Computed example of a mutant assay.
Amino acid sequence: MHKEKLSIVKIGGNIIEDETALVAFLKLFSSLEGKKILVHGGGRRATIIASKLGIESRMVNGRRITDADTLEVITMVYGGLVNKNIVAKLQALNTDAIGLTGADVNSIKSDKRPVKDIDFGFVGDVKAIAYNSVDKLIQADFTPVFCAITHDGNGQLLNTNADTIASQVAVGMSNLYETSIYYCFEFNGVLRDINDKNSVVKHIDSKVYKELLEQGVIVDGMLPKLENCFNALRHGVHNINMGNTSMLTQANNNFTTITL
């Protein structure tokens, strides 16, 4: 039986912080055909608001340390300010969006990250997606908009990486749909040469990935991103796309598609 397609689109803080870019992106997202889910971060806005409240943001290896005060700010900013702003703008574009944390309809459960070398505080590692519950919203013609907050099932909210949420939601929903992920970021895709924005590697499979690793093309922050991608593909996701927001249009084919 052929599964219906479902697109999971993830946007980061650089788009959220730029009102013009956000509106342009949401127009593209709302005109994307078929069933879809949006996942957003908001770390930059959280850092700005935290500093206004006199709360210092601490990062280790690009990951935020989430103490109790920081968790309060993140809940306000991700779950409130950013999420509801996006939902309101989507309603204006005739997309009937519903804003969610992982606690809503028990959709995303996490375990608090165990303390090894670093205590990340109230940070969650995703354990389960209630895909049938999320599907009830989709079947009712709502478009879920997830912020980067999950819960542990015992009343505790947890800050969770938005890239991970996108991939885990896609894995969960692949039980019901043919899922594709779109990671929107500032580059046109995975680049052969970081100084040449047009040097996009258009297709990466396991073999090409190995070659790019050996050539030293994939390094630093792209390593965990791509490891995450292949993990999702091995667990049922159909394909993953990386590029700027224009990859959501039919006209642009200059982005990276990742398959097994």
Rank of each mutant, 00 (worst) to 15 (best):
V134K: 14
M59Q: 09
V219Y: 11
G99M: 09
S167R: 06
T160E: 06
I204R: 06
M59G: 01
L176Y: 02
V23L: 13
L53K: 01
N239T: 04
D119R: 05
D141E: 12
N106T: 09
S133E: 15
I55F: 08
K136H: 11
K136Q: 13
T150W: 02
Y183R: 05
Q215P: 00
L226H: 10
Y177H: 10
S180Q: 11
A130T: 00
T143Q: 04
I86K: 01
I74G: 07
G41P: 03
I49M: 12
G41A: 07
N161H: 11
N175K: 09
G13L: 00
D141G: 03
Y131A: 14
I65H: 00
N231A: 10
S180K: 07
N61H: 13
N161I: 01
K89V: 06
R234P: 01
P144E: 02
N239G: 06
N161C: 12
L22F: 02
N175W: 07
D125V: 09
L81K: 10
D69Y: 09
N94Y: 08
K10Q: 09
S7D: 12
G99C: 08
H40R: 05
H203V: 14
G13N: 03
N188Q: 15
N195M: 13
L233C: 06
L157R: 08
N159D: 07
N244D: 13
T256P: 07
N175I: 03
D220H: 11
H235C: 00
N14S: 15
L93K: 03
G41T: 06
K89A: 09
Y183W: 04
I16Y: 04
V123G: 07
I16W: 01
L38W: 00
F185T: 12
D220P: 00
I258H: 04
Q168Y: 14
R113V: 11
L213W: 01
K5D: 10
A103G: 13
R63D: 07
E186K: 05
V208N: 04
V169E: 07
I138L: 11
N154A: 15
Q250K: 13
D111C: 00
V134M: 09
E227C: 00
N244P: 00
S107Y: 02
T101L: 10
Q156F: 07
V126H: 04
E72K: 12
L32K: 02
A162H: 03
T160R: 08
E214I: 12
G41Q: 01
N244K: 12
K27E: 15
L260K: 14
N94K: 15
F142D: 06
I258T: 06
G79E: 07
M222T: 03
R63Y: 10
T256I: 02
C229R: 11
V9P: 01
A232V: 08
G216I: 10
A128F: 08
F142P: 02
K3P: 00
T164P: 03
G41V: 09
R113D: 09
I86C: 05
D18H: 07
T101V: 13
E178K: 15
F185S: 12
T75Q: 08
I65E: 04
I48W: 02
L223D: 01
V190K: 02
G189E: 04
E33A: 13
A140K: 10
I37N: 03
N252T: 10
S7N: 12
Y177L: 08
A21C: 01
A148N: 14
E214M: 08
Q139T: 13
N198Y: 10
L93E: 13
F185M: 15
A68F: 08
Q156Y: 10
Q168I: 08
